[in-house]
Simulated scan of single mutants.
Amino acid sequence: MTVGEPTVAEPTVVAVDQGKSGTRAEARVESGASVHGAAPGLSLARGSELGSTGADAVVDAVASLRLPRPPDVVSVGTTAAPESQDARRELAAELRARLGAERVLVTEDAVTAHLGAFRGAPGVVVSAGTGAIALWSDGQTCARVDGWGPILGDHGSGVAIGGAGLRAAFSAMDGRGAPTSLMESARRHLGGLGLDAARRLHAAANPTEIISDFAVDVLRAAEEGDQVAGAIVARAATDLATSAALAARLSLAAGEHPRCCAVGQLMRSPALRSAFTERATELGLVVGPAPAGSLAGAMFLATTGPPPAFAALVGVAAGARSRLPGPLGAR
C-alpha cells in the first residue's frame, strides 16, 4: 500500500446453518476472530410457522452476533430453502435487504453439509435428521436421492425410525408384534398407549416432529439390546446406505469407490453409525468422518462462491462488486 492510500477494511463474512432444532450463525470479522450467535429453528413445537422460509430466524441469528456494521457477505444453508433457483434468489434478495449485506447466498443444508465434508471435492454425503437426503458430486455435477419428506420418502430418517418404533409399540400391545421395551418408551413419549394417545398424535399440529423425536428412544433401545429396535435401526442403516449408493451410482458404475460421510443428529448413535458404515462399505463406498459440518460449509460457500457442481442450487443476491475483492464479489 502506498502512502496516503486509504485502508480497505476486510469484509465481514457470516455463515448460517438452519434446521429444525435451531439456527446457528458464525461471523468472521476484520480481526480474524469468529463470533457465534443463534436463534430458534424451524420446529413447529418451538414456534416456527408452517411453511416458513426461516427468514426471520436468519435475521435474528445474524442480529445476535452484534456486529458493529452490516455484514458484507451472508451465506445460508437451510432445510427450508425453496426448490427453484429463482425462488432461492428471491429469498436471498429479501435477506440482503433486511440484513443490509452486500451479497447473500441461499442454498439447502444438504449442499452446505457436502461443502463442509468435502470442500468442493468429489464424494457423497448422507444427512439424517428429521428427514434424510443423500447428495453426491464428482466436483462438476451432482445428484441427489430422497429428501422427499415423510409421506413420499425420507428413508432411514428420524421420522422413519420413530414411526417404525411407535408402530412396533402399538403392534406389541395388540399382540401382533414381538414384545419390546418400546412399549413403555412410547407410553412416556405420547402420554399413554391407547386410543386417546393415538388420537392426540393424529390431531397434533406437528405430528412429524413428535414421531421423529421418538427416534432417540428407538436408537437407545437398540443400543441396549432390544431386538425389535435393533431391527428398525438395521433397516434404517440399509435405507441410508442405499440412498448414498444410488446418489453415487455413476461413480460406482465406473468402478470407483467414492468417499462417503454420514452427518446429522441421528448419526450420533453408535448403533446406527456402525450399521450404516458396514452396509455402505458393502455397497462400495469408503466411509469416513466429516471433517467439518454444515456451518463450516456455509462459510466455505461464502468465501469461495458456489462450486460448479452446486451453482444451480445456490440463489445469489448481490450489489456492487467493487466492495468485495476476489471470490467474495463474484456473482
Rank of each mutant, 00 (worst) to 15 (best):
4 G>V: 13
6 P>F: 13
9 A>S: 14
9 A>Q: 15
15 A>T: 11
16 V>P: 15
21 S>L: 01
21 S>K: 01
22 G>N: 02
23 T>A: 05
23 T>D: 06
25 A>K: 10
28 R>M: 14
29 V>N: 10
32 G>T: 07
33 A>Y: 04
35 V>G: 06
38 A>P: 06
39 A>G: 12
41 G>F: 02
43 S>V: 05
47 G>C: 08
49 E>T: 14
49 E>W: 10
50 L>F: 12
59 V>P: 04
80 A>G: 03
91 L>D: 04
94 E>K: 12
106 V>I: 14
107 T>A: 14
109 D>C: 03
111 V>A: 00
114 H>W: 06
114 H>T: 05
126 V>Q: 00
128 A>V: 03
131 G>V: 00
132 A>E: 01
133 I>L: 02
143 A>N: 07
144 R>N: 03
148 W>E: 09
148 W>N: 06
151 I>A: 14
152 L>E: 11
155 H>L: 13
163 G>R: 06
183 M>W: 01
183 M>L: 06
185 S>E: 12
193 L>W: 13
194 G>Q: 06
203 A>M: 09
207 P>Q: 04
212 S>L: 01
218 V>N: 01
218 V>C: 02
219 L>K: 03
221 A>C: 15
240 L>G: 00
241 A>H: 07
241 A>G: 11
252 L>D: 08
260 C>S: 07
263 V>L: 01
267 M>Y: 03
268 R>H: 12
272 L>V: 00
278 E>Y: 02
283 L>E: 09
287 V>L: 04
289 P>A: 09
289 P>Y: 02
298 A>H: 02
299 M>P: 07
299 M>L: 15
301 L>Q: 04
301 L>I: 15
303 T>S: 11
305 G>R: 03
306 P>Q: 05
310 F>D: 12
311 A>N: 07
312 A>I: 07
313 L>G: 07
318 A>Q: 14
319 G>P: 05
322 S>G: 15
324 L>M: 09
325 P>V: 10
326 G>L: 08
327 P>H: 11
329 G>R: 14
331 R>W: 15
